[in-house]
Design a protein around this nucleic acid. Structure first.
Length: 602
RNA sequence: GACUCUGUAGCUCAACUGGAUAGAGCACCUCACUACGGAUGAGGAGGUUGAGGGUUCGAAUCCUUCCAGGGUCGCCA
């Protein structure tokens, strides 16, 4: 058989089935309309062709159709060597040799599962995008891990990916921290306080809130109406004035703003480094909100938007089933949408070949992005229809939502540190790292701890809300990152030992024909390209996570049942070692797409 | 109220997009093995897929009506 690109088994079977159908029943079948699926384990066979939909065209009962089709497929040239029919299901047996040679050749490719870099359009992925007034928390972890993983998945599909964030560095929130620091800070800095910069600024944000509440209570006690007491509290007024001074470019205000944001960035950088995520370019709201205003006014001139009597600019989306939406206030100041329009257009300008943007943002902003993409389309960007809001659900705690006021926010740094510490305790007990120095051990604890966290947050379908039960999430057994790592490490250990014992040249040796449990493992490895493609199409890393787990479980069971190095026959050992090598490598690829680094020992 | 997402074992999650007897992990019970790394494997029990109706050879999946929960509907971000 001569094919340039590796032909996927299912496509091959569709082609054979289509030809077979025509020779049996006279009419041609569209190969894509033939549904091929994995055979359930309780029936003999590897692939199943569902014949119910075909019976109309064959003018025969489903079983009869399946029977004749099966016979024709076996006698055709190709990998089908047997079949059985259960009701309308045609179970096909694939030649074990087909699996064996596939494992030996195509699965050996260094880039197996990945498409060539640059073979798909340029995509921008935005994630993280925090406010600069408080530290990153559990919700940000889900956001960052998702965005980072989707970036890797798109890269594996051949896309050029640019990872960005929009830093929400301006507005009333940071002004609140600034005012509180001025009033109560006594010149405190991250150095003098011995505190990460983001934590320090967060501390003053909390201090602001407390001072504000105290003022409101005091004013109410003095007999003031609720509304007046809340809106006119001096510290709040001061924050609003600070914001106005900032917008006017007041030097002292801007200098403090720059200083305190700088502290935050240093703190964030440390957190991102620990998390293992990175960005190619940062966008700042303070740079883009003015651009947004210009672009909206341009759109107004071109008649895409409309102006109301008070001078505000609106977009009318009633024709798209939505509402009218404000783009610019009557006094000319920007709203959230204004700056997002500016940011999006700036990005298309920065990268002219950009095919689309992916926004990793919580599901409470779904409406916002619907509007944004419609606005971009109205401004004439064809990329708008390919832009995607990677919407994800909230991370909930057993006691409910995270509330900063109630102190139930799970801090990202604290959580990661806790995971590392648990990893250390378990590893010390196992005692497998005794030969390593302190620094290398620490690196392993971090990988193991982080794998637990990342896998836990990524294995759930992004669009669903998920429960973060601290007790369950730090589990290192069962369906967890560390379980997957453990089996990887074990496989690697066997390969090292094979090398040391002189069995390292298995790639060039004759290999036994796989039996059924081996074919199951090969089948899982064979799925990888489809899993990656589906994950990329749906922006859904959980598909990759679940594949990693299924593969690992199958290997773990196989490892339990068979001694790899202790195989009686040389050809059997070659098969088991080859399987182990392909398992570790394809698992490495899959986990890498989740942003999870694999250790060599743990 | 309108729109939207979700509802699957006691708990946390799957289910190849309409296929066969709905699967994993945790917790519970029973086993296996000096194990090439036990951070293991095998088995048991646990389900009217929120409820009703419909579509068809076939529904957790599609349509419809309810029920419950989340989210959105700001000149907030």
């Amino acid at each position: 058989m001569t094919v340039d690109a590796p032909l996927r088994l299912d496509n091959l079977l569709q082609r054979i089935a289509s030809d077979a159908f025509e020779s049996c029943f006279g009419s041609a079948l569209d190969a894509h309309s033939i549904s091929i699926q994995k055979t359930r384990s309780e029936f003999p066979g590897d692939r199943t062709l569902v014949c119910f939909p075909l019976s109309r065209m064959s003018k025969a009962a489903p079983d009869a159709t399946a029977q004749r089709l099966g016979e024709a497929m076996v006698s055709a040239e190709g990998p089908v060597v047997g079949f059985n029919v259960v009701k309308g299901f045609l179970n096909l047996e694939i030649q074990p040799d087909y699996w064996g040679s596939w494992l030996k050749t195509e699965a050996a490719d260094a880039g197996y599962g990945r498409r060539p870099a640059g073979s798909a359009p340029h995509v921008m992925v935005e994630y993280s995008s925090p406010n600069t007034n408080k530290p990153l928390h559990l919700g940000h972890l889900r956001n960052n891990f998702l965005g980072h993983s989707v970036s890797r998945i798109l890269e594996a599909m051949g896309h050029t990916v640019t990872k960005v964030q929009i830093v929400n560095d301006r507005g009333i929130h940071i002004c609140k921290s600034m005012v509180a620091w001025q009033r109560m800070g006594n010149g405190e800095t991250p150095e003098s306080a011995g505190m990460k910069g983001d934590k320090l600024v967060g501390k003053y944000y909390v201090a602001f809130d407390q001072a504000y509440k105290a003022e409101v209570a005091e004013r109410k006690a003095a007999g003031m109406a609720d509304d007046e007491a809340e809106k006119g509290a001096p510290i709040l007024v001061e924050a609003q004035e600070t914001l106005r001074r900032w917008e006017q470019g007041d030097e002292e205000t801007v200098a403090l703003w720059r200083t305190m944001n700088g502290w935050v960035y240093t703190g964030f950088d440390e957190t991102y480094a620990t998390m293992g995520v990175e960005f190619d370019k940062l966008y700042f709201e303070s740079d883009t909100y003015l651009i947004g205003r210009e672009r909206v006014l341009e759109g107004l001139e071109r008649g895409v938007f409309e102006r109301s009597e008070d001078g505000a600019v609106w977009v009318d989306l009633t024709g798209d089933g939505l509402d009218r939406k404000l783009l610019l206030r009557g006094d000319g100041t920007a709203v959230y949408m204004t700056q997002d329009i500016g940011t999006a257009l700036l990005r298309f300008q920065d990268y002219e070949d950009l095919d689309r943007q992916v926004y990793t943002v919580g599901n409470e902003q779904e409406y916002h992005f619907k509007v944004l993409f419609l606005v971009l389309a109205k401004l004439g960007f064809q990329q708008a229809e390919r832009c995607h809001h990677l919407s994800y659900g909230m991370v909930e705690l057993p006691e409910g939502k995270m509330k900063s006021r109630e102190g139930t926010v799970v801090d990202a740094d604290d959580l990661m540190a806790e995971m590392f510490s648990i990893a250390r305790d378990i590893a010390r007990e196992a005692g497998k790292l005794d030969g390593l120095d302190e620094k290398d051990q620490q690196a392993v604890f971090q990988r193991v701890g982080l794998s637990a966290l990342k896998y836990f947050l990524l294995k759930v379908d992004p669009k669903k809300n998920m429960m973060f039960d601290p007790k369950a999430s730090i589990d290192f057994y069962g369906n967890t990152g560390p379980f997957i790592l453990f089996n990887y490490v074990r496989g690697r250990s066997v390969l090292r030992k094979a090398d040391a014992e002189g069995h390292g040249n298995f790639e060039t040796q004759e290999m036994a024909i796989p039996a059924s449990d081996e074919m199951e493992l090969i089948g899982l490895i064979h799925d990888l390209p489809d899993v990656i493609q589906e994950a990329a199409l749906t922006y859904n890393p959980s598909l990759v996570a679940n594949w990693c787990y299924d593969l690992t479980k199958a290997y773990s069971s196989y490892y339990q049942d068979h001694s790899i190095l202790g195989a009686e026959e040389e050809e059997t050992r070659v098969l088991r070692l080859t399987l182990t090598e392909r398992f570790t490598r394809s698992l490495h690829t899959g986990m890498n797409l989740l942003g999870i680094e694999l250790p060599e020992r743990m």
